[in-house]
Computed example of a mutant assay.
Amino acid sequence: MQFGIFTVGDVTTDPTTGTAPTEAERIRATVAIARKAEEAGLDVFATGEHHNPPFVPSSPTTLLGYIAGQTERIILSTSTTLITTNDPVKIAEDFSVLQHLSGGRTDVMLGRGNTGPVYPWFGQDIRQAVPLTVEHYGLLRRLWREEVVDWEGKLRSALQGFTLVPRPLDDIPPFVWHGSIRTPEVAELAAYFGDGFFANHIFWPTSHTQSMVRMYRRRFAHYGHGAPEQAIVGLGGQVFMRRNSQEAVDEFRPYFDNAPVYGHGPSLEDFTTLTPLTVGSPAQVIERTLGFRDYTGDYQRQLFLVDHAGLPLKTVLEQLDLLGEEVVPVLRKEFAVGRPADVPPAPTHESLLRARRSEEKPPADEEEGPEAR
C-alpha cells in the first residue's frame, strides 16, 4: 500500500501572525515539503492544478519536473490534472517528458475541475465538463498507446498523422487515477478502462465515499477487469497532529476557521465528526485512517493533506516527521493484516513493465531448449 501527501498549493495568510508567503516562497516551500516527504519515508507526493487565486500550482508538471531532480525515490503525481480544460496532446507530451526525467516515478490523476470561471479561460464551457472528460481522455489514451494517431471528435479539432514525442518511457504510459469528489461519471470512466479511482475523501461524509467506491468496484468487475476487490482505489485524507490531542485542536482551530476551502462554515468539531478530517494525536490518526477500510475495502493508496490554510512550513515539516515516524509505519503493518492475496498493490512503472514483459514471454513449452538446437 502506498502512503503520501498531496497539496492544493494555496497562498493563505497565517491567521496567528497576519503574514502570508509570497508566491515564490510558497512554491519553494512546496519543493521543500516534497523533499521532506521522501526523507520521511513516504511513497507519493502529489500536487493539484489550479489557475485561480489563492493557489499557485498552475503548471504541475513544471513543478514535478523540478522536484524530480531533487529526489530519488518518491513517486511524483498530480492530485488533479484538469482533463477538461487542458489539451490532451499537451498532457500526453508533458507527462511523457516527466516520465523520462523522473525515471518512471510518475503517474497522473485526472479530474474535471469544478471552478466555473476557469473553463472559459481555456476556451471551454463547464456545462460540457463530463463530455469533455470522456472525449479528452479517450484521445489521451490513444496518444500514449499508438505510434500514429488519426482522430476526430466533437469538442476538439481533429488530428491527422500525429505522433507523440517523446514516447512514454519504455512505451509504458503513466498509470492513470481518476479523481472525484462527487461525480459518478468519473468513477464509471475509471471502471470502464480499468484505471484507478481516487475518492478525494476530505469534504463529504463517509457514506458518500462508500457509495462512490462501491459503484466503481461494481462497474470495474462489470467491465471484466477482475473481482470488485481487485479494483484500484485511492483515498484522500486530512490531518493535523500533535502528540497531545488537545494541543492539536487548539493550534489548528484558527487555521481551520480561516481556511479558503472550508473556513467560516461548520465548526471544527462538526467537520471532524462529519468528514474524515482528523485533528489530534498520531494514535487518533492511525485509528481513524484504519477505519477507512471498513467502508471502502482494502485499497491501494492513501494521501494526506497537511500543508494548507496558512500553516507555516516549519509546522508542515513537523507533520511529516510525525507521519513518517509514528503513523505510516503502523498503518503499513496494520493494513497488511488480513489483506487478501488477490488484492493487487498500487501499480508503478516497474510493476507495469514487469507485467508487460511477462505477457510477452512465450510459454515454457514454446521456448527453445538445448534439445532443439
Rank of each mutant, 00 (worst) to 15 (best):
D87C: 10
A24Q: 13
A283D: 15
G237L: 10
D257K: 07
T275P: 00
I286N: 01
N86C: 11
P345C: 08
F45W: 10
A190C: 01
P131E: 11
P184K: 08
G196R: 01
L290C: 06
Q284L: 07
V130A: 14
Q2V: 03
E360P: 01
G236V: 03
V134T: 04
D321R: 13
R182H: 13
G123S: 08
G179Q: 03
P166D: 07
K314Q: 07
H349T: 09
L155Q: 08
P117S: 05
G237W: 10
A355D: 03
Y262A: 05
L143K: 06
S211L: 06
H50P: 01
L268A: 01
G123Y: 06
V134L: 01
A259I: 07
H201S: 05
D87S: 12
L76A: 13
P205L: 06
T183Q: 08
V306F: 03
G104M: 06
V249D: 03
N52Q: 11
P329G: 10
T275V: 00
G153I: 02
G4F: 01
A34P: 10
A341T: 14
E251R: 04
T206Q: 05
P166K: 05
V327A: 08
L159D: 10
P60W: 11
E185I: 01
G265R: 10
T106S: 15
T206Y: 05
L140G: 08
F240L: 05
P340W: 10
G338E: 10
G111V: 04
E188H: 14
T22K: 06
L235F: 03
L164E: 02
S59E: 05
V97K: 09
S351L: 00
T163F: 01
P362R: 12
V213K: 08
M1R: 00
E367L: 15
L140I: 07
G369K: 11
V285P: 07
L159Y: 07
F3C: 13
H208P: 00
H136S: 15
Y299R: 07
Q210S: 14
A227R: 12
A372T: 11
L290T: 04
T278E: 02
V89I: 13
G237F: 00
F335H: 14
G116S: 12
H136L: 06
G291H: 07
R142N: 03
P88C: 11
R105M: 07
I91N: 06
S157A: 15
P329R: 15
R127I: 12
E318R: 13
G224L: 11
R301I: 14
F198A: 09
F95S: 11
P15E: 13
F252C: 04
G65A: 15
L320K: 09
F45Y: 15
E334Y: 08
M215D: 09
T13V: 15
